[in-house]
């Protein structure tokens, strides 16, 4: 438990808040694992791995539903205010972002199964390389974001926001490369290239959702809505104003 759940005169309230936070962290851990598995898939694609990711998303969805149920219960029962209210709202938002990340991973895993089914040639190692780099970046970011939620560590949140910029740059560069890709002659390569665009786009989206998570942590701790503000403003909000 953290300062964000403790200290209520009604102790059960502490417990309910801690449980909600625990559920968010469990979901965060699961989505991190999913992302890790997907990055593995980019290394040695097996249909089995892709199917497992798709299958496991059911657990992500279950946690999504359960946490939203708990959020509603807390709102109705405890009429939370101030830090409690912000913790609960942030938890709900983070859960939604995690669920979206889960969906992105399912989408790209399905793509893999399509490729396997269609007897197309394996994906070109050149193409895979960028996707892997982005996937790993997204993974590092997500771990940072989940940690920052766990420990309410705003330095980590800022770091995630910075990394999201790098991921964005990486995405632009990869797109550029794909546009200039030399061997687009055969139809197979066209569809493989398209698949790759979808994959790196998914990694970019995951980075975006992850950045949102980091921003909700700032909101939870500071009561300031830092979505849609630049990095500099974010920095200011956290360090300069109190």
């Amino acid at each position: 438990m953290t300062e964000h759940t403790e200290g209520h005169i009604v102790r059960r309230y502490d417990g309910e808040l801690a449980q909600l936070r625990g559920m968010v962290l469990e979901m965060g851990g699961l989505v991190l694992f999913q992302l890790d598995q997907f990055v593995n898939l980019l290394g040695n694609s097996t249909e089995k791995l892709a199917k497992q990711i798709i299958e496991r998303d059911n657990d992500v969805n279950r946690l999504d539903i359960e946490s939203h149920r708990d959020v509603l219960k807390l709102l109705a029962k405890r009429a939370p205010v101030a830090t409690d209210l912000r913790t609960i709202i942030s938890a709900a938002k983070v859960v939604t972002e995690l669920e979206h990340i889960g969906d992105e991973l399912v989408k790209v895993s399905c793509l893999y199964i399509d490729i396997a089914d269609s007897k197309r040639p394996q994906l070109d190692e050149n193409l895979l390389q960028d996707a892997r780099v982005m996937g790993k970046m997204a993974h590092t970011m997500l771990r940072g974001a989940v940690d920052s939620f766990d420990t309410v560590n705003l330095e980590k949140s800022i770091h995630v926001a910075q990394e999201s910029r790098e991921l964005e740059n990486e995405f632009q560069a990869a797109l550029q490369k794909l546009t200039n890709y030399k061997s687009l002659e055969s139809d197979n390569n066209v569809s493989n290239t398209l698949s790759m665009v979808l994959v790196i786009n998914a990694m970019e989206r995951i980075g975006h959702h992850t950045k949102n998570i980091a921003e909700y942590v700032v909101y939870m701790a500071k009561g300031k809505d830092v979505r849609h503000v630049g990095l500099d403003r974010l920095f200011e909000e956290i360090y300069i104003s109190n």
């Binding site: 005169i9 009604v10 939370p80 205010v81 101030a82 912000r86």
Partner: peptide, 19 residues
């Protein structure tokens, strides 16, 4: 006051953290 009180005492009171 109810979403982001500035003073710790206010926060503790409205969130039910002391009597």
């Amino acid at each position: 006051i109810f979403t982001n009180p500035k003073h710790k005492l206010t926060e503790e009171y409205i969130t039910g953290r002391f009597g």
